[in-house]
Structures are given as structure tokens and as C-alpha cells.
Amino acid sequence: MASPWMSESDDALLAALKRALAESESVPAEFVAVGKALFAVHSLEEELAALTYDSAFAAPEEVSASRADTAVVRLVTLSSATAIIELGFAEEEVVGQLISTAPGFCCGPGDVDVKTLSGHISTVSLDEAGRFRVRPMPQEAFRLVCRPLNAAEVPTVWIPR
């Protein structure tokens, strides 16, 4: 494909570049600073359980239907090579369950660390069935590190609020 840039005059190209650079100047400095600061918060090493379902992406009818039956307003699923984490967001808490993908393998008891973006860490317990409850509801993006006593840790990606 012939690049459309080739057919533009020097003046037009310079004007387009000027507009593009002006657009970048309108970005609030804070917006950029927050992005930079996240590098320090994040660990590049770990294998993280990824977000594989989020009802916030689902069709509106589907979401309102599920909301009618239950207090859960948002459902999230995270998956790693060894486990699945199901999260249900209610009004004031998040209920979750760690499920091993290895058959017959139990995911509890143990602990779950809840880390928020601003660095606050709290720990809740994981029962025999791998269930846990985060209360109060984190008010910002957070990630979980599930630490079952008899199995490998399962850290998750950041879960947006």
C-alpha cells in the first residue's frame, strides 16, 4: 500500500505534525505521572491470573437480568494455568472462590492478600472450599494473591473498580 503521507505537501505535513504535537500538550501532567508511577507498583516477574470474564463488559440486558435475582452486581473470572478465581461484587463486599483446575485438588484453607493501588494490603482467610470474602469493598483497583496452604500461590492481574 502506498503511504498516504507521501502525497502530502511539506506544508501540509508540517501542519499535521504541529496538530499532533499540540494534542499531546493538552494531556494533564498528572495523567502521565500516574502511568509512570505504576511501574514501581507492578512486578514484571510473576505469572498472573488474567481477567477472562467481566460482566461489566456484558450486554446490558444480561447484566440487569442477573441483578434482579441476586445482590451481586458484577461478576469477574480470573484464570491462571493452575486455578480459576470467581469474584462476585455485591453492594459492600466482594465474595470469591479459588478453584483448582487440577481435578480433586482442594484450594483451601489459606490466606488471600488484597493489595490496592495506593499500597494498602489486607489479608482475609480462605476456607476449606477456597471461599473468601473481602470487606469493605476496595475503592480502587486491586489485586489478589491467593495463598492456599497446600498449593502454589495464585497472584492476579489488577482488577479495575
Binding site: L38, L44, V157
Partner: peptide, 20 residues
């Protein structure tokens, strides 16, 4: 502005998670 900040934050985190 608030929602934009949230989106920005999530996008950078996703990028960090996927850098490798």
C-alpha cells in the same frame, strides 16, 4: 476526568502485565 484517570490506570496496568 475521574473516569479518564481510571481508564488510563487500567490501560497502563494491562500493558505492564502484558509487556513480557
Amino acid at each position: 476526568r475521574l473516569d479518564s484517570d481510571d481508564v488510563g490506570q487500567t490501560v497502563w496496568l494491562r500493558l505492564l502485565e502484558n509487556l513480557g
